[in-house]
Design a protein around this nucleic acid. Structure first.
Lengths: 221, 221, 221, 221
DNA sequence: GATGAATGAGCTTTCATTCAT
DNA sequence: GATGAATGAAAGCTCATTCAT
């Protein structure tokens, strides 16, 4: 009262909610929604059992907040980078987009959210819908625009846009999911998580090659 | 007495375990391991609470059995098809391998196991290892052999084999996971699960094109 | 049908109930009433789960039957021996009585019933009452008569009869209980169950000496 | 607000464990380990189902704690009294030891633990061993020392020490067991539990007489 | 008679949530 | 705000008992 005593504690008070969400993110990603105990979250956040309830209504709301907060934060970081889409080629833009995603999401704990959302989508349909609207769709739209422009400009040959987006997304999704599942299990790692960024780059190049070069004249079925 | 009188005895003892595993597979895939109640499994299998325990030691053993039985059965079906690998081209072999996988696993409920295993891998490390050894590794090895042969014969240009395998696998993994997560949520489906087989074929072709055609001579790596 | 086929099986059919009771006795004594499963009893009796219910209404009835049958059988064996109570001295009679009890009950599985009844008396009051009436009281009465006669004849000095009976009974009770409890636990046995009969004889002699010899003139309080 | 408002908070956290153990002791002694429900224990302790698990890992740990706490507490009370063993005669010392035991254990609820341990020894061998080491053996050792000294000094005539200890123990054991089994059953009480202390004194005297006076010269062993 | 698959009440244990302090 | 003792619904698992065969 008055002296505002310990400044470290003062700072902490404002930080509580996000500390709790951080702890929750980590645990949810690691153990799944059901297997994560509220007390574990509290403990990991350095508070006691009752405290999370001062900031969140219940476990489900924490889960939703984790998704929302993480998404919002990460997506904002992405947005900043995406303003650079000046007049680079389609290939370059795709490379930058994927690298951005990797840096801001794929290589961070947020990537675990992907696995988490996939695992819990059917248990939390509205949350899944939110995630779809806020993450999946915007991301796909961004990629779609780039690809479309490339096709319009003749850089890429015509193809089903959605499929191309899927092609571009799949390696990232795979990497994010595997690195937070089998990648964590000793003995499964051999061929899985070594140098994911290298794989992502290779994958992009392989896709771009298929997209750029004209198909052999007699190839289309 | 025609088709037997009492419904309690209509089905045979031998059918019970697989009925229970069927029910469990569906529920596990749908709701996750923790969120699936034993009584739900029993009910879905048309029996009461105690009956699953006559055939399985506990919930975890049911989970393991689901993975094992589904995997083993599907993998055997795959094996039969894989004996056909005579003297087709690498592209054709890869096409057949992926189509087989799609038909026998990707398009069935078994695909949900993939999501399940990814979600629960860190909770059941030992089971994850088993899954890795019995499913992931063999599948990757098979693809690896085909790709290697294609490179040796000059059909494919040289590249990091593991990355190519990842490239070939990623679309399938993505399809299987999304169709059992967001794909089930009304409103998320727009661009996700429509005609997955078409996507898989496109993806394969795109990858093959990147693999077959020589890179443009002036493309910087 | 007709040939009466296998004579060993024929014999067994009549023996079923007592085989079940034998098995039940052993298990009850060993593990207690609650911890003994009906299926264990069946298995130990060489039959299947449902069979005990053909001969006994339920678990509690089996328990009661075990007590009743064992008691009746053993008590009859005792009775035969007790007809010998001709005109031996009190000391001799007591020695014979206790030795008989030891041979027919104390050294047999029936001794475990004692521990069992003590453990379950409050859970099965009417059974306890039955046991008291059929076992404890008659046994005490028999001892009481002998002691009384000894006092009347001057062989024993006057004392509280009930206490003398307790004195005579306690070593037997202790032996029977300990040999079916701590005596079974490796590491507890050191001083407990070695040569119980020798102890019983010593105990009797010690008691008799206290009873026979005139107390030091100034001893009675 | 006088004696505090809400009954849920009237008692202190520190009191809970011993309240629970008290309740458990009573119920275990009364009904046996298996027949005692956790919820009964909770209820008897004035709390709800979940509360005992805040203080004890599980039912078995409660059982062990009951034994440990009761034993340790009582044994410590005994130890204090045993420091008095100055230079009284063997008879006097034995009388004091038994009376102490009676006052601190035999006449309390702790006596029921004896029955309990005998009933459950084979189900909890490790606990039985603990009980043997902490209770049975020390008690026997104490008695053994006294008897040995008496023999050395000529107060007692030579005899098998273990048997003498058994002789001294048996009446106490019998009293403790019977009073917590048949003694609780209406109708069985006639000759059993009336004035146990009187019996214990008589028994001791009888034993001492057998031990002190020289055997009649012509008594054949 | 005998079997053994199935039942379902009952028990132990967990954990999200509350609330007096 | 923060605590953490207490709650009690919920879930896993057991086992006495039944009954079609």
């Amino acid at each position: 009262m008055g002296e505002s005593g310990n400044s470290r504690w003062q700072r902490k008070k404002e930080a509580r909610p996000s500390e709790i969400l951080d702890a929750a993110l980590m645990l949810f990603v690691d153990k799944g929604y059901r297997a994560t105990k509220m007390e574990d979250i509290a403990q990991a956040a350095g508070v006691t059992k009752g405290t999370p309830y001062l900031y969140f209504q219940n476990k489900e709301e924490i889960f939703k907040a984790v998704v929302r907060e993480t998404i919002v934060a990460r997506m904002q970081a992405m947005s900043a980078q995406l303003a650079q889409l000046h007049d680079a080629s389609g290939s370059q833009l795709l490379g930058m987009a994927l690298e951005n995603w990797w840096i801001h999401i794929g290589a961070t704990r947020s990537a675990g959210l992907c696995k988490l959302m996939a695992a819990e989508a059917t248990n939390f349909p509205e949350l899944a819908l939110f995630y779809y609207e806020e993450v999946i769709r915007p991301a796909r739209q961004l990629l779609g625009h780039i690809v479309q422009r490339g096709m319009d400009s003749g850089e890429f040959r015509p193809a089903n846009i959605e499929h191309v987006i899927d092609m571009l997304t799949a390696p990232m999704l795979m990497t994010m999911i595997l690195s937070h599942s089998f990648g964590q299990v000793p003995g499964c790692c051999e061929s899985l998580t070594q140098d994911p960024l290298a794989f992502l780059k290779t994958a992009l190049q392989l896709t771009l090659q298929g997209l750029q070069n004209p198909p052999a004249p007699d190839t289309q079925s």
